[in-house]
Design a protein around this nucleic acid. Structure first.
Lengths: 339, 339
DNA sequence: CTGAAAGCGCTTACAG
DNA sequence: CTGAAAGCGCTTACAG
C-alpha cells in the first residue's frame, strides 16, 4: 500500500557500482565514441541493473536545452487538432524531440497562460495550433523560443513561422461544388470574425458575385438566429429561400443538419449542406457531411519542419497548403435541376 | 526576421541590478517572510524590469520536485477524455500544480512509451486516463511516482489510485430503460474484452436473465460482422430480431445508428439504440443517442484529489462513481407495445 | 582511453 | 534582516 519512492540512482551511483569515474559514465551513456566498447557495455549494463535514468532537469540545465517542444491547442475537444498533433509528433520523433501538449480550453486568456507555462517549462520551441493568440503575444513568444503557428491569426509576425490552409480556395471548392449541382441560392452560415472565417466568407461572396449569383447570397450569423432563419425560410417555402448552405465549419454544418432533420426537412433534397474541416463529425452524422478537408497530418509535419529549421537558426517562414473537397451525402442536385 | 534568443536573466543578474546578494533575490522571489517588504518590492520590480523568469530546471533539480503532474490519454481523439482532463486541471490548479498532457494514439505500446517519457520529464505524479496499460506497468510507475488510473484496467494494484464509474449499474440503467419501453429482445453490441466492456456485458446478461428475458439475449461482436447481422435480421423481419440494442459505447452506437439509417430503417421505430459515455457524438447525431453518462468532470477532480493525497504520503485508494442515463431520441417504445 | 574540476541556475542551511 | 558556501545531477573542456 505504501507509496514510498526511493531516490533514483545518479551517474555517481553507476560510477561507483561500475568502478569508474562519473564523467566516464556520462560519456558512455551518451554514446561518446571515445569510450571503449567493452567499457561502455559494462557501464551500460550496470546502469540498467541499478535502474539508472538520466535526470532531465540536470541535463537540460547544463546543456541549455531540453529536446522538448510544446504544442498548444485551443481546445482538446476539437478533433480537427488531433491529426495535426500526430503530424507534429511524427516529425518531432524523427528529430529526437519530445512533445508536450497543453491547451486553452477555448479561452484566449487561458491559452496565453499555457503559453507562458510551457515556456517556463523550458521547451526548445513551440507550435501553436490556434488562431486565438494575439499577434503581440506570439511575437513575444518568438523572442524567447522559435514559434510556429498552425492556423490563421489576425496577423502573423515574420518572426513567427506559419502553416495555414488556403481558405479562399477551400471556400471556392465548396461553392463550386454546390453551383455545379445547380444551386443558385446558397447561404453562408458563419459567425467568427477570425481571419480564416473572414477569408472563407469573402471568397464565397466573391465567387457568388463573379458567377452572377449575387442575388442568391445570404450571410447568416449562426450565433444570432441565423440557423432558425434559414430553416424557417425553407419551411414556409419562401421564393428566395436558399437551396444550399455553406457553413464555415463542420460544427455549424452538423448543427444545421440536425436542425433541418428535426424540422422534418430532407437533406439534401430540401437543403444541401457543406461544412469545412472534414472532422470526425462529418463522417458520423447522417447523411454524411460534404466538407472541405485540410491536409492536417501534412500541416503538422510542415509546422514541425519549419520549427526544426528555426531551431537550427533559420528564419521563420510561412506556408499555405491546398484544401480538397470530400463529397458525402449532404449535398445533392438542386430541386428542379435536370441532371 | 532573425530568431536569435538572448539568454534569459538569472538571479545573479537580478542581484547585480538590485545591488543585493543572489540568495536574497531567491528569498524575495519566493516570498520568504524574512525579507523586508521594501527590499522585496525593490527586488521584485528589478526582476520584472529585466525580464527575469525562474529557471524551472534548476529549481526542480535542487528541490527534487517539479510541481507538475503528467496526464496520459489513450487517445487525443476521444472527447470522452476531455472533461476528465478539465476536472484534473481544475483540481491541480487549486494545488498549484501544472499539468502536462501526453497520449498513446490508441496503442498500448505507444502509451507505455509516453508513460516512460513523462516520468523521465520529472513529473511529481501521474494520472492515466486509460485502461490500456498493463497492471505491471502501472505498478512499476507507482513505485517511481504516485499514480492514479481513471478507467478500469484489468486489475488495479493497490499501490495505484483508481477512479471508475460503476459499469454494472450503468449497463443496468440502459437495459432497464429499454425494458421499461417494452423491449424484450435486446441485443448487446460490444467487442473489447477490457474490464469495463466485460462488466457491462455481464450486467446486461444478468439483468436480462433475472427479468425473464433470457431468450431475448443476443451478444454481437461489432468487429466481426455483428452490426450487419443485427440489421439484416431486422430487415428480413426475422421473428427473433431484436427491437433494441445496447452498445457498449457511443462510437458503436453511432455506427449502428448510421448503418440502420443507411439501410432505410427508422430509429427508434424499427430499432431503439442506447450508447455509453454520453460523448459529444451522442448529441450530434440524429436522432440523438440515449446514452449512459459518467460524471467526467467529477471523476477528473476525484483522481486529482487522490493523487494529491498520495503526494502528501497517503496510501492509494479506489473510488467508484455512479453513472446516470441521458435519454434522447434514439430510444422509443417497442413496436406493438401499448403505451 | 580515463579522471579531476568547473559550472549550469537555483535553494537551503549557516553564519553574521 | 543579509551574504558566502555547499550542493542538486549532469556535461564539458582539460589534463593525463
Amino acid at each position: 500500500m505504501s507509496n514510498q519512492q526511493r531516490p533514483s540512482p545518479t551517474i555517481i551511483d553507476v560510477a561507483r557500482a561500475a568502478g569508474v569515474s562519473k564523467s566516464l559514465v556520462s560519456l558512455a551513456i551518451r554514446g561518446d565514441a571515445g569510450v571503449g566498447s567493452a567499457t561502455r557495455e559494462h557501464i551500460l549494463s550496470v546502469a540498467h541493473e541499478i535502474g539508472y535514468r538520466s535526470n532531465l532537469w540536470a541535463r537540460s540545465l547544463v546543456r541549455g536545452r531540453s529536446q522538448l517542444v510544446g504544442v498548444l491547442l485551443n481546445d482538446l475537444h476539437n478533433t480537427y487538432h488531433t491529426d495535426i498533433v500526430h503530424g507534429i509528433e511524427d516529425a518531432a520523433a524523427e528529430q529526437g524531440l519530445g512533445v508536450i501538449i497543453s491547451h486553452g480550453r477555448r479561452e484566449a486568456t487561458v491559452l496565453a497562460q499555457r503559453l507562458e507555462d510551457v515556456l517556463a517549462l523550458g521547451v526548445d520551441g513551440i507550435v501553436v495550433i490556434s488562431a486565438l493568440l494575439d499577434p503581440q503575444l506570439l511575437r513575444d513568444a518568438a523572442r524567447r523560443k522559435p514559434t510556429v503557428v498552425v492556423g490563421r491569426p489576425p496577423a502573423l509576425p515574420d518572426t513567427v513561422g506559419g502553416v495555414a490552409n488556403h481558405d479562399e480556395r477551400g471556400a471556392r471548392l465548396a461553392v463550386e461544388h454546390l453551383t455545379s449541382l445547380g444551386h443558385r441560392r446558397i447561404a453562408h452560415l458563419t459567425h467568427s470574425n477570425r481571419a480564416a472565417a473572414t477569408a472563407r466568407k469573402q471568397s464565397y461572396l466573391d465567387l457568388m458575385t463573379a458567377l452572377g449569383y449575387a442575388e442568391g447570397i445570404q450571410v447568416l450569423d449562426s450565433e444570432a438566429g441565423g440557423e432558425t432563419e434559414l430553416l424557417d425560410s425553407i419551411l414556409v417555402r419562401r421564393a428566395d429561400a436558399p437551396t444550399a448552405v455553406f457553413a464555415s465549419n463542420d460544427r455549424r454544418a452538423a448543427s444545421i443538419l440536425g436542425g433541418a432533420l428535426d424540422a422534418g426537412l430532407r437533406v439534401p433534397e430540401d437543403l444541401s449542406i457543406v461544412g469545412y474541416d472534414n472532422t470526425d463529425l462529418a463522417a458520423s452524422v447522417r447523411p454524411g457531411l460534404t466538407s472541405v478537408d485540410q491536409p492536417r497530418l501534412a500541416m503538422g509535419r510542415l509546422a514541425m519542419d519549419i520549427l526544426t529549421e528555426m531551431l537550427g537558426g533559420a528564419d521563420a517562414r510561412h506556408e499555405v497548403v491546398e484544401p480538397t473537397l470530400v463529397v458525402r451525402g449532404s449535398t445533392g442536385r438542386a430541386a428542379g435541376t435536370v441532371n
